[in-house]
C-alpha cells in the first residue's frame, strides 16, 4: 500500500514536471543551449523517474529479452542521436507535432529504457557507454563551436557557439567525475546509488 502511494506520488511529480516543461516550451526553446542542456535532459530525467515506478511491474518478456540491457541501451543511443540532429531541433521549434513527438519520445524511448536497462548492464558495458558518450558530447560541442554557419534555422550563430561551449564543459565535467569515480571511488554512503541521472 505504502509502495503504491509513493509510486503514485512519483508519477504525479513526473506528470507535473512534464506539463510544466510543455507549457514553458516556447521560452526554453528560444535559446539553443537551454533547449539542449536544460529541456532535453529534464525530459530524459522524467523518464528515469518513471523507470523507478515501472520497474516492479516490468513485463517478464521484456526483462528477459533485454539481455545485459543491450537492446534498451541501443534504443537510448538511437533516441539521443535523433534529437541531436540540427534538423530535429529545428523541427521541434517550428512544428508543434514534432515537439510533441520529442516530449513523448525522450521520456518513454530514452529515459525509461535507460532506467530499466542500465541496471542489467555489466560494469564493463556501462564503462563502454560512458567512454563513448563523453567524447561524443565533446565532439558535438566542438562541431557547434567551430561551425562557421548556422546549423539551425531557428538559432543564432552566437547561441550555437554557446551551446557548443556548454557541451564541451559538460563533457569535461563528466569525464573528470567519471575518472574520480573509477580511480578513487564513490563517497562511501553513496556506493549503493550509482545511477546515470544527469545525462543528456
Amino acid at each position: 500500500m505504502k509502495n503504491l502511494m509513493s509510486s503514485r506520488r512519483f508519477v504525479a511529480v513526473v506528470a507535473l514536471t512534464w506539463l510544466m516543461l510543455w507549457m514553458s516550451r516556447t521560452a526554453l526553446e528560444a535559446n539553443m543551449a537551454v533547449h539542449m542542456i536544460v529541456q532535453v535532459p529534464l525530459l530524459i530525467a522524467s523518464g528515469l523517474v518513471l523507470a523507478a515506478v515501472v520497474r516492479p511491474h516490468e513485463p517478464r518478456w521484456f526483462a528477459d529479452a533485454d539481455w545485459l540491457g543491450i537492446p534498451g541501451i541501443v534504443l537510448v543511443v538511437f533516441g539521443t542521436s535523433f534529437w541531436m540532429l540540427p534538423r530535429a531541433l529545428d523541427s521541434a521549434v517550428g512544428d508543434p507535432w514534432m515537439d510533441a513527438a520529442k516530449f513523448l519520445s525522450l521520456p518513454l524511448l530514452v529515459g525509461l529504457p535507460l532506467g530499466l536497462s542500465w541496471r542489467r548492464m555489466p560494469p564493463l558495458g556501462r564503462a563502454f557507454i560512458w567512454a563513448n558518450f563523453i567524447p561524443k558530447l565533446g565532439a558535438i560541442g566542438g562541431l557547434y563551436l567551430g561551425a562557421p554557419v548556422r546549423l539551425c534555422a531557428y538559432y543564432r550563430l552566437d547561441q550555437q557557439a554557446t551551446a557548443g561551449w556548454m557541451l564541451i564543459i559538460i563533457a569535461i565535467a563528466l569525464g573528470l567525475s567519471w575518472f574520480i569515480v573509477v580511480f578513487i571511488g564513490w563517497p562511501r554512503h553513496e556506493r549503493q546509488r550509482v545511477s546515470p541521472v544527469g545525462v543528456s
Partner: peptide, 11 residues
C-alpha cells in the same frame, strides 16, 4: 536469452 535477438533486431 530468448527474445534477445528479435528485440535487438527490431530496435
Amino acid at each position: 536469452t530468448r527474445g534477445f535477438l528479435p528485440l535487438l533486431a527490431l530496435i
